[in-house]
Amino acid sequence: MFSAVFRDLVRHEFRSKGNWKKQNRTRIPRGWWRAYFLCILVAMIGTATYFALRNDLQVNAIWSITLGFPYIVFFLGFGSVKNEWGNETYGWWLTIPESRMRLIAAKWLGSWLKVWAAILMLFVIASVYVMILSFTIPYYSFETAREFMATGIQWLSLIVTLSPLIIAAGILMGILQHTVIRPLAPILWVVFMAALGLTYSLTDIVIPESSFSPQQSLWVSYPLELPAIVAVDWILAFAVLRITAFLLEKKLDL
């Protein structure tokens, strides 16, 4: 499984391959996109800093920008397949002479690495920001920053560890559209979208209320349920990838 070809496949999936549809729109130069992104970032930091200066900022609220993550992760997996059809590269992808499981697993791992990259980046940026606040504004102590990071680690690690199944489900939905069992698609959409909502209720189990209180002495505290949840998630993810590989091998309908 972990051969040089697999490594290259994962690398290929991890990299941005572009999208012809976006390509054909009137192109806005990259510099502008970067400028817009920076503007939004500055505006967000500015707003947060404004409230922080008035001692009004609940730092943990910063993590609310990640609330959409479970859905974003799902569509990351879905998009990795959909793009092959959107770009009309599926003929190339499907005729790569490697086992279908490898092909699927590479897409899955490529997407998961993207999730890791995004989350690590976000965590570092947000933590550094709150650290700076805690050093410069007397209202915010080092304890605030520590608590902020602990909450972040708990919530983000929940996303990271649950995303294997979420990505796998996204990939399955992407492939399903092109197989003989595509009539099942509407049902599965409803099921998956509803199931993603459950992620939020898991926070009640995984992130105990106590961890939000400043008295919490532990750096990070995980409840006992978490390993079980993760194990079930990963086993299911593997099963979903197996099913997807089977569909790809035997039930494709082009």
Binding site: R15, S16, K17, G18, N19, W20, Q23, N87, E88, T89, Y90, G91, W92, T95, I96, P97, E98, S99, R100, E249
Partner: peptide, 21 residues
């Protein structure tokens, strides 16, 4: 099957390539 494709060079119909490459 995918194994026979090791010995086949195939140009798909109406194929495109990844625009960012």
């Amino acid at each position: 099957g995918w194994r026979t494709n090791q010995s086949i060079a195939y140009l798909p119909d109406r194929a495109r390539w990844y625009p960012n490459h």
